[in-house]
Amino acid sequence: MGSVRTNRYSIVSSEEDGMKLATMAVANGFGNGKSKVHTRQQCRSRFVKKDGHCNVQFINVGEKGQRYLADIFTTCVDIRWRWMLVIFCLAFVLSWLFFGCVFWLIALLHGDLDTDYKDDDDKSKVSKACVSEVNSFTAAFLFSIETQTTIGYGFRCVTDECPIAVFMVVFQSIVGCIIDAFIIGAVMAKMAKPKKRNETLVFSHNAVIAMRDGKLCLMWRVGNLRKSHLVEAHVRAQLLKSRITSEGEYIPLDQIDINVGFDSGIDRIFLVSPITIVHEIDEDSPLYDLSKQDIDNADFEIVVILEGMVEATAMTTQCRSSYLANEILWGHRYEPVLFEEKHYYKVDYSRFHKTYEVPNTPLCSARDLAEKKYILSNANSFCYENEVALTSKEEEEDSENGVPESTSTDSPPGIDLHNQASVPLEPRPLRRESEIGSRR
């Protein structure tokens, strides 16, 4: 089982795998120059863009038009607004034209077009017409509009002379109601789609790998820009990579689940303020055997998904993003964004995407760390350097704002901070800030 798991979770494809794949392509008759073999020097295209759209195009789909027309309502909801407006206008105009032609044909076959009612006051002739005051196609078209929109100006009306005319008036009224219901329903469904809710759900630009509770963890940050909550919010993550099976089958995008606390339930989050999602790199993680150097040379993509129900409509929305291997910062942490004021908490989104480097973060893999092949620094050293990194950030910001350097908390000259780390230190809580992250 261990060997199978290692093969499945191998992220960085070796040169031997690339040569094996190329040999397979030639042997199977696919070596026509169009096949692409992804190596370390040639990274694959992003499968999920940063804005959440999937970078996929469908080609050679059989009976595409028929399949889309069979699900016309979903098609109308998914198309762009400009095409929705075109369909909206065409549906009414074509129905008016169709029934206008029908009423014109009825008048033509009944002989109503030969009668001039402007110079004739004989009401008996008017009563013999199928539709009064309809003696041309324009008049028939206007009567069709008046019937379907129930305008009723009063000059044109159907008589009991022709039952077919009466039937067409009733039929057009029913068709008009159906068109109204369909168009209004599609427009309302399109307006109520929770897709735009994703514009106020954000992911951090970069993911980070750092120590948390004595273990290497992959972390990324999510935030909600609205005050309205995302009900039943939960997160998922998958690692996408290519691999070759033991039988020699090439899988271009193998999807591997990344555990973010599904078993323990901590994948469900209360997204009021930005939260750091934590994936513990343990023996079940696809990143277990990867060191910093392996991450730098790897070719994979981590897709992160945030799902929840919109509070206003109770409709489920899904926000997506992805991180390539070069977008994962090893040995970094996110800057705090949640600050405790006197009577409330304040979230500073200008710090949302910012990170700071944490010294002495192990550069080895989580496996080597678990097997004690890498000796961690003293816990006080880690905490102290973590505090120094934050303090230096604040000093830089104070210097930019014009604060005198004498007010900063610099260490005395001639003292090495790293050498001082081995000395037991008193706890130094942050002056006014605390970061709330997901705790395992």
Rank of each mutant, 00 (worst) to 15 (best):
V4E: 11
Y9P: 15
S13R: 04
E16H: 07
M19Y: 06
M19W: 03
T23I: 03
M24F: 09
V26L: 08
N28I: 03
G29D: 15
N32L: 05
N32I: 11
K34Y: 05
K36M: 10
K36V: 14
T39Q: 10
R40W: 07
R40S: 14
Q41S: 10
Q42V: 10
R46I: 00
R46F: 01
K49D: 11
K49G: 08
K50I: 01
H53E: 05
H53V: 08
N55D: 14
V56G: 05
Q57V: 06
Q57D: 15
Q57A: 11
F58Q: 14
F58P: 12
N60S: 13
G62Y: 07
E63Y: 09
K64D: 05
Y68G: 08
D71V: 06
I72P: 14
F73H: 15
T74C: 12
C76S: 13
V77M: 14
I79W: 05
R82S: 05
R82C: 04
L85A: 06
V86D: 01
V86H: 09
F92W: 10
V93T: 04
L94R: 01
L94G: 04
S95P: 03
W96K: 00
F98C: 14
F99V: 00
W104Y: 15
I106S: 02
L109C: 13
H110F: 01
D114Y: 10
K118V: 02
K118F: 03
K118L: 01
D121M: 15
K125I: 15
C130P: 01
V131E: 02
S132Q: 09
S132F: 02
S132R: 04
S132K: 04
E133M: 12
V134Y: 00
F137T: 03
F137H: 02
T138Y: 03
A139Q: 07
F141V: 06
F141L: 03
L142N: 02
L142E: 03
I145K: 01
E146L: 02
T150A: 07
I151L: 09
G152W: 02
G152E: 02
G154Q: 03
G154L: 02
G154C: 05
R156L: 01
V158Y: 02
D160K: 02
E161V: 04
E161H: 05
E161M: 03
P163F: 07
I164A: 08
S173Q: 04
I174E: 02
I174V: 04
V175C: 06
C177S: 12
I178M: 15
I178T: 04
D180W: 14
A181L: 14
F182D: 02
F182Q: 05
G185Q: 07
M188V: 14
A189Q: 14
A189H: 15
M191W: 09
E199R: 13
V202K: 14
A207V: 01
A207D: 00
V208D: 00
I209C: 05
M211C: 13
R212W: 04
D213W: 09
G214P: 00
G214R: 14
K215Y: 04
C217K: 09
L218R: 00
L218F: 03
W220R: 00
V222K: 00
N224K: 08
R226H: 13
K227P: 03
K227T: 11
L240I: 11
L240Q: 04
K241R: 11
T245A: 12
E247V: 11
E247Q: 12
E249C: 11
E249V: 12
I251K: 12
P252T: 14
L253V: 12
D254K: 11
Q255R: 08
N259E: 10
G261P: 02
G261N: 10
G265E: 08
D267Y: 03
I269M: 10
F270D: 11
L271P: 04
S273L: 04
P274S: 03
P274H: 06
P274Q: 04
V278F: 05
E280W: 14
I281G: 01
I281S: 01
D282M: 09
E283K: 08
E283I: 07
E283S: 07
E283G: 12
Y288K: 00
L290N: 03
K292T: 01
D296W: 04
N297T: 08
N297K: 04
F300P: 00
V304I: 14
V304Q: 00
L306Q: 00
E307F: 05
A312D: 05
M315Q: 12
T316W: 13
C319R: 04
S321V: 13
S322I: 01
W330L: 00
G331V: 02
H332R: 05
E335H: 05
V337N: 04
V337E: 02
L338I: 14
F339V: 10
E340Q: 05
Y344I: 04
Y344K: 15
Y344R: 15
Y345C: 06
K346I: 04
Y349Q: 12
S350C: 09
S350N: 10
S350I: 10
T355G: 02
E357A: 08
N360G: 11
T361K: 01
P362Y: 00
C364E: 07
C364N: 02
S365T: 01
S365Y: 00
A366Q: 06
A370L: 06
K372Y: 10
K372C: 11
K373D: 15
I375V: 13
L376I: 07
A379M: 08
F382D: 03
V388Y: 10
L390N: 15
T391R: 06
E397P: 09
S399A: 15
S399V: 11
N401I: 11
G402E: 06
S406H: 11
T409H: 06
P413C: 10
I415A: 11
D416E: 04
D416Q: 10
Q420Y: 10
A421R: 10
S422W: 09
S422L: 05
V423W: 08
P424F: 13
P424Q: 13
P424E: 14
E426Q: 07
P429H: 04
R431D: 14
E433L: 11
S434V: 11
E435I: 05
I436P: 09
I436A: 13
